[in-house]
Design a protein around this nucleic acid. Sequence first.
DNA 1: GAGCGAACGGACTAGATAGTTAATTAGGCT
DNA 2: AGCCTAATTAACTATCTAGTCCGTTCGCTC
Lengths: 224, 224
Amino acid sequence: MAAQVPGAIPARRPADGPDRSRDPDRTRADILDVATTEFADKGYAGARVDEIAAKTSTTKRMIYYYFGNKEQLYIAVLERAYTGIRTIERELDVEHLDPVDAIRRLAELTFDHHESHPDFVRLVSIENIDRAEHIARSSVLTGLASPALDVLARILDRGRESGVFRGDVDPLDVHMVISAFCVFRTANRHTFNAIFKRDMLDPALRAHYRGMLCDLVLAHLTVR
Amino acid sequence: MAAQVPGAIPARRPADGPDRSRDPDRTRADILDVATTEFADKGYAGARVDEIAAKTSTTKRMIYYYFGNKEQLYIAVLERAYTGIRTIERELDVEHLDPVDAIRRLAELTFDHHESHPDFVRLVSIENIDRAEHIARSSVLTGLASPALDVLARILDRGRESGVFRGDVDPLDVHMVISAFCVFRTANRHTFNAIFKRDMLDPALRAHYRGMLCDLVLAHLTVR
DNA sequence: GAGCGAACGGACTAGATAGTTAATTAGGCT
DNA sequence: AGCCTAATTAACTATCTAGTCCGTTCGCTC
């Protein structure tokens, strides 16, 4: 964190205690970190700018100085969260695996990411409540289809050629099924637990659900 | 509009036009209807009591008269929405169908309900953002496991006995997969469309997704 | 037709909340 | 050293918002 500006002097900072020196990047990043947690926690309407400011090492005025207003701050939070998962997806390399193992790997990677980034999943839910109106206002976010989709299309092609996969499945539909499963486990955890008394994120059930996702997707894709 | 001027003659309802007579049940129901739409639209934090009151044919004072405060009004909305779907589930009768058709019927019923009740799905999302804290405060809602679960368990048993279904599947997991698919389609419609440019609720895709859900679940359950 | 309680309406309040004003400081550049 | 601008601070404001006070009206019973 605290990316150094090229040519900047490394910060004269008294080794301990909060950093009080002037560091725009650090201040911005600090605000973004706190805002991410706060928006994911309370939703867009529920989050309070004063609250975010209080949890920051700077003041409310700085939020407006760097981000303009509450909405632009929220959009900045969304942009960082989305580009995060897209970066991970881009690193996926499954060309050397056979189609079945490749699907399994892709499903597991998605599963793991959703499990380890509940804030991201919550932000997506929140954004849907607002009918994606903030995403629509961000040019960064609108043209941001998942790199995983291209990878998926390649895997399906290879699987069809080798005769193990059905030929009539759309990559986006497969992506949707995987997402639906992973998103549901995190996004609906609380109501599901309240009504059915099962915590889908219980560590003891992790392996069960991870395997189940792979089975589900592969059963659907496999020729019988 | 047409607020009663003090001292004016009440005009006991000229046959047409809104009902102005005293009717507690009607008033309560009116408030609940408006509140459901408003909470589903804006979320709990985003909804405004004043706004709800304005869209009602009565006043804000009446909301507090009948429901006490904003939270209890919201809980009343949740209770009505949940008991709605549970009632439909209870009417499900699939004992006369073979296991495969029974699963198909159950999946389609769930699919149809989610499609025709987007407000319910949104309320569930909203409640998850608040970590189901309002459900937890309602004794009506906490002890409300889905009747569909018992039906599902029966179908799975019958399918296992006749050898068409695997024996190691948990009814709650099957319920979860069906819910995940149906909930995702409605709950994540906006972000999915914003990023992948596909409206999962496009009527032209309805049959495709409905069939896909059945295939998906049955492929997972069927012995190979 | 008087009395009574449930149902109702409108104006009011205290506190919260997004956003601002304006003055101040630190640090790089010449 | 001294200027100049980006970065920072704290106090302030207009508006919004959940919740309340209190007086009024309807419809029923006796």
